[in-house]
Design a protein around this nucleic acid. Sequence first.
DNA 1: CGTGATAGAATTATCTATAATTTGCGATGG
DNA 2: CCATCGCAAATTATAGATAATTCTATCACG
Lengths: 222, 222
Amino acid sequence: MAKEKTDTLAIRISRVLAERIISGALEPGARLRQDHVAAEFGASHVPVREAFQRLEAQGLAISEPRRGVRVAAFDLREVREVAEMRAALEALALRQAAPHLTRAILDQAEDATRASEKARDVGAWEEANRRFHRLLLAPCAMPRLLAAIDDLHAASARFLFSAWRAEWEAPTEHDHRAILAALREGQTEAAVTILARHVQRIGRRPVTSATGTTREAFAIVG
Amino acid sequence: MAKEKTDTLAIRISRVLAERIISGALEPGARLRQDHVAAEFGASHVPVREAFQRLEAQGLAISEPRRGVRVAAFDLREVREVAEMRAALEALALRQAAPHLTRAILDQAEDATRASEKARDVGAWEEANRRFHRLLLAPCAMPRLLAAIDDLHAASARFLFSAWRAEWEAPTEHDHRAILAALREGQTEAAVTILARHVQRIGRRPVTSATGTTREAFAIVG
DNA sequence: CGTGATAGAATTATCTATAATTTGCGATGG
DNA sequence: CCATCGCAAATTATAGATAATTCTATCACG
């Protein structure tokens, strides 16, 4: 997470901008002007351009040739598209990873679940949730697949932050526990099915918090 | 397909380099040196750097932070990873596209199938095969998903060209016809299943041509 | 008087040219 | 024979020049 000295300037800039887009500090449709960003970072505009390209590859920005680059707009349809893609790819990853899951990994995943239930803000929850998914999927040893899933997680996080910027109450993670239980019993396909449905719920249906208040028509799942 | 005037220089360079990587003219692991490429195109190295980044986003090249960029190595494991990802994502796309498929589209897809069976070289076959898949999947109207599938197709094509550079004989497309038949009868799930298996076969098992000679241990499917 | 088009100016993206680090390799000395 | 220093090549960053687009203001025409 720390900005390593070995990273190129473009990479560091793109990370900062990505955070801003995900957190909502930069709103959808906002123009990213290279000179301004360059001035802010005390850099030249060439590394800024490369940072923009990285954002575009992640799907966080879109650039029209010679007309500049804007923060990618994302509506409910986009959210659902990302959810469906995550469901398809995470199911594949879990299926491949399952044979390599050890007891230790499952225990760590359980820790992550507990952490996400204790999270007091969206950022903490997102991090714990991400850790859970990554722990279970990483052993598939398919780097391209994992990279694609990471980008989709970023897009999902963006949606999360837009829905709950201030008030936040952690949900109880039934699905996570069910997935872990199935994996512990060696029922891979059951776990895969739960995971797929779990992820697909993003942006699908309303959810009521523990206090009984109904939130926006979005689901808090990851 | 023509180089449009509106495209940026970096985009045009990346297209040319992508073709070379896919066709095998640039071998896996080969170093891409920005000065040399810049000299070849009579350009400076900044647009070349941006072209490299695009290639990296497509998975055709990998760059190590201050050590240059190389053509992505791809072994059989990588090919299978791409095949699995394509199967998962194309299945999703077809499922979403099915309700919007018209008679006209299916007819065009059948034309594409015939064209691929008549193809006299790998390039022609690849193009026809790509057209078939794109026709059936595009109506899902999920731009991010389609872009991801396109990149995976490029990686697949790369593998195809590496296996059959010179001699080539078009296979008969049983799977394509079975998919079309199922779709015409409204049996979406059956079509999805065939498509998924069809794509997964890439890099999986040997194939014998019409002349009876056994090719390398790869399958010609797409 | 209002609407539309056009020319010019300002802004912005793109490209070139040049300078500054950094890596890798080779030679030299211990 | 190994380690360290130094040189060469390549990547990364900066600054300046070029080209394209957008905005604005003026003028013609209805």
